[in-house]
Amino acid sequence: MIRTFRAARRERRAAPPGNGRRIRLDSVTPPLYRRRVQDMISARGLIKRYGDHTAVDGIDINVPKGQAFGFLGPNGAGKSTTMRMIGCVSPPTAGELRILGMDAATDGARIRARLGVVPQDDTLDTELNLLENLVIYARYFGIRYKVARERARELLDFVQLSDRAESKVEDLSGGMRRRLTIARSLINEPELVMLDEPTTGLDPQARHLVWERLFRLKQRGVTLVLTTHYMDEAEQLCDRLVVMDGGRIAAEGTPRQLIEAHVTREVVELRFNTEDHGTIAEKLDGTAQRVEVLPDRVLLYTDDGESTVAEVHGRGLQPASVLERRATLEDVFLRLTGRTLVD
């Protein structure tokens, strides 16, 4: 499956539509200019090793300007390591990594000056209040004090924390800390914002507030790169995403494309009041295009949920519960890796 996808992409590259015209464009457009305009991030064969452990195992990524790009995958897939490499705080072991048209290996400080980063751990300054956190962070970028204060006030407003400006960071809830970290990442008016699991550990209300703010950023034309292991987050926010597993990219595309390419349109979830799912799987054979047996339920991949359910009942099976639903990225992930996202 993976190979077919890659092969298809290679073919598209080798013979793009309007072949002749594109080649002419290449010859008149300086490559550096093209890179600047088109790709905020471009990685080729990116590898990161820690001793014997390979955290990121040769990935290729292209993120065009203005796109919301997502890394979807379970813990340990290499998402955060990739984010740290793009953030220029972790030198790649091998491969080429260009960000904003500059080389990550040599231009780290210049790249970081134009980047906004929301790390997985908030890394807020717990000895300073909220306003000071933003102002001092601005100073690390060399932003003048007066401008720093103005922006800090505006950003506190943007993340709805103005009334807590003088509070200590320790007194904030998880959601508030996350919002403050997002505000901090915007202090240098970045063209590219990197968010590592922006809503992990937040309650639903706090998540929606974060999503809404991120959506506003996207509308302003800011390029967003985020990691998540929530498929609903990926579907809500990402124009395009890659599924990562074991340091590699398992698949790439828009959420819709991924679902269409890797799973059926609908899924029927069955739960049985029995231990032995194995024999049930045999009985279910042929009711759907694919049958996936999980420890707690059985998934039937089908293009027509209703007739599949009818077929299941027709075979005399009595599931404790039946759920017909649209296929999601979670199913894509399960299909590609044989594992669920959040375990």
Binding site: G87, V89, G108, A109, R110, R112, A113, L115, V117, P119, D121, T123, L124, D125, T126, E127, Y137, Y140, F141, G142, R184, N188
Partner: peptide, 14 residues
């Protein structure tokens, strides 16, 4: 403990 520098190094600071 504070992981302060992890945040600081995400800026042009080296």
């Amino acid at each position: 403990w504070m992981k302060l520098y992890d945040g600081v190094l995400a800026t042009p600071m080296r």
